[in-house]
């Protein structure tokens, strides 16, 4: 059995003693696998008794003793033993004491060998109506997960965080409703395959890319750059090995990201507002805005 801390063992022994009505010392000794203290009346066969040797020379088990020692019901022990023997292809171990009377070969239908007269009495279970509990295992702190967390300043999600979230949600809903009340979504003329509007623009979040098309070969602007961009984004955490999150330690990362962020924003704004018919350059204040997403607002 695993090494149990003394206090846990003691507590378990007390509980067991209470359930079985035996002195605490005896339960404790039994759990430790020691001989019961002198004078204690042995209700169950002592675990310290020497194991009898079977005539065959094979392993010998005294199920009654084990049953009371480990607190596992005897039929279960017996079943487990047979199952293991079957799995390993070995003979069922001989039984100590009276249990030997049950021949292993004939024992397939007899889960618990009847106690022969004169043998030790079957392990006394708890009195009827009493439920006992066993301590299966004790996981020592730190065995699975380190628990060296420093105490943190924490607050309850309810009401503090949920209140903030609720306000944010209402604010967003208000913004969206107001916007929708005053600006209608555009619905232009019916789709016409024979009449391409000039200019034809992609949805605005792709206009940065469309803007790039004005400078580069379509293979580069339309495919290579976005694909590369997405892959580069995904790899950021694996490329950036700097463990610090302090802005002052991350000047390079900040600069690179900011450059790309600004570039994407500028290209998108440029494609949206500074491109007119033929996707040629226009000044929005002089030549008008060619951005149909906001057509209803601009009219």
């Amino acid at each position: 059995m695993a090494q149990l801390p003394e206090n846990l063992l003691r507590r378990a022994a007390e509980a067991r003693a209470k359930a079985e009505g035996i002195p605490v010392e005896e339960a404790l000794a039994e759990m430790k696998g020691e001989a019961p203290p002198a004078g204690a009346d042995a209700a169950a066969p002592s675990a310290g008794a020497p194991a009898p040797v079977a005539a065959s020379g094979g392993p010998v088990r005294d199920l009654d003793a084990e049953s009371s020692k480990f607190g596992v019901p005897r039929p279960l022990l017996d079943r487990g033993m047979r199952a293991r023997a079957r799995k390993d292809g070995t003979a069922v171990p001989a039984m100590a004491g009276a249990a030997v009377a049950a021949s292993p070969a004939a024992g397939k239908a007899a889960p618990a060998a009847p106690a022969a007269p004169g043998g030790p009495p079957p392990a006394a279970g708890p009195p009827p109506g009493v439920r006992t509990q066993r301590l299966l295992t004790v996981v020592k702190a730190g065995a699975i997960q380190g628990t060296t967390k420093e105490p943190q300043d924490k607050v309850n999600v309810w009401p503090h965080l949920l209140a903030i979230e609720f306000v944010a949600l209402l604010a967003m809903l208000a913004l969206l409703t107001l916007m929708s009340a005053f600006i209608d979504a555009p619905l232009l003329e019916f789709a016409n395959f024979n009449q391409q509007p000039n200019p034809s623009k992609a949805p605005w979040y792709f206009l940065g890319l469309q803007e790039l098309l004005a400078y580069f070969d379509p293979q580069v602007a339309g495919v290579l750059l976005p694909t590369f961009g997405m892959i580069a984004l995904m790899f950021i955490p694996y490329v950036d090995r700097n463990p610090s999150v302090r802005p002052s330690d991350r000047k390079l990362a900040f600069s690179i990201f900011t450059v790309f962020f600004m570039a994407a924003s500028i290209l998108t704004i440029f494609g949206s507002f500074f491109r007119g018919p033929g996707f040629n350059f226009v000044f929005p204040w002089r030549d008008g805005i060619f951005f149909d997403d906001l057509k209803t607002l601009l009219e």
Binding site: P186, L188, F190, A191, N192, F193, P197, K201, P203, D292
Partner: peptide, 8 residues
């Protein structure tokens, strides 16, 4: 399914 949708 208007002109904006189709051509964008």
């Amino acid at each position: 399914w208007d002109q904006l949708a189709l051509w964008a």
